[in-house]
């Protein structure tokens, strides 16, 4: 059972506590969230920096921490180990035959890196890093992508101003304009093309790979 019997009891009584009328609600269900509860869960960070806590971290601190907490999967230089995600490199490859989508080549906003590391990394030990540690790791990933020098210190104040190389590389879904008109024609039913030949065979033949 819960380590906090008082809280557990409060939870059991939740419905009664919620009897406090909630003006907006038609049903009067649920209870008002407390400020501590919102602070505990409302962790997301926006591109403009909203949601970032106070703190700072340097490339050098990040390098050390990265080696301990991240390099097993992402490599010492954020180059990736095996199939684990590469975080560095790949710039200039997005229109190539084998594009490499890394933080440096693909991610449009630095806030996303901070937010994801803060809430979901290290893999299997999430939400254990301090804000300063997250700033340091993000600083090191920037450094690994040749985007800052080794003296760089990332802070709440300067993070929103860091421009990622691919920040203008995204367009909002335009299938309705670009694809749907051409793909919404009455389909051909008979003699639609010349007799066909097989052009590509399956790569992995095993039925249960």
């Amino acid at each position: 059972m819960s380590k906090f019997p008082d809280l557990a009891r409060a939870a059991l009584l939740g419905v009664m506590i919620a009897a406090t009328p909630v003006d907006a609600g038609e049903f009067g269900l649920g209870r008002a969230a407390t400020s501590d509860e919102i602070a505990a869960w409302n962790l997301d960070v926006s591109p403009d920096g909203r949601g970032l806590p106070a703190g700072a971290g340097s490339v050098l601190d990040g390098e050390e921490l990265f080696a301990d907490a991240c390099a097993a999967c992402h490599g010492d230089f954020a180059e990736g180990v095996g199939n684990w995600p590469k975080l560095a490199g790949g710039q200039g490859t997005l229109d190539q035959e084998r594009p490499q989508k890394t933080v440096g080549s693909y991610w449009p906003y630095l806030s996303t890196v901070w937010d994801y590391i803060n809430r979901s990394m290290p893999y299997g030990d999430a939400q254990t890093l301090t804000p300063d540690e997250v700033y340091a790791l993000v600083a090191y990933i920037l450094y690994s992508n040749d985007l800052v020098d080794e003296e760089f210190v990332l802070t709440r104040e300067n993070l929103p101003g860091v421009e990622m190389p691919n920040r203008d590389g995204f367009i909002v879904d335009d299938r309705a304009q670009v694809e749907y008109p051409g793909l919404s024609q009455a389909p051909c039913m008979d003699d639609c093309k010349e007799p066909v030949a097989i052009t590509k065979h399956v790569v992995v033949r095993a039925l249960n790979p």
């Binding site: 989508k101 906003y109 996303t112 979901s120 590389g169 995204f170």
Partner: peptide, 19 residues
């Protein structure tokens, strides 16, 4: 603009832009 809606689940196009 979280990780799953930027670095993942976006569609790279032939010219290097992503949808």
């Amino acid at each position: 603009e979280a990780r799953e809606e930027t670095s993942k689940y976006s569609d790279l196009l032939g010219d290097g832009r992503a949808r």
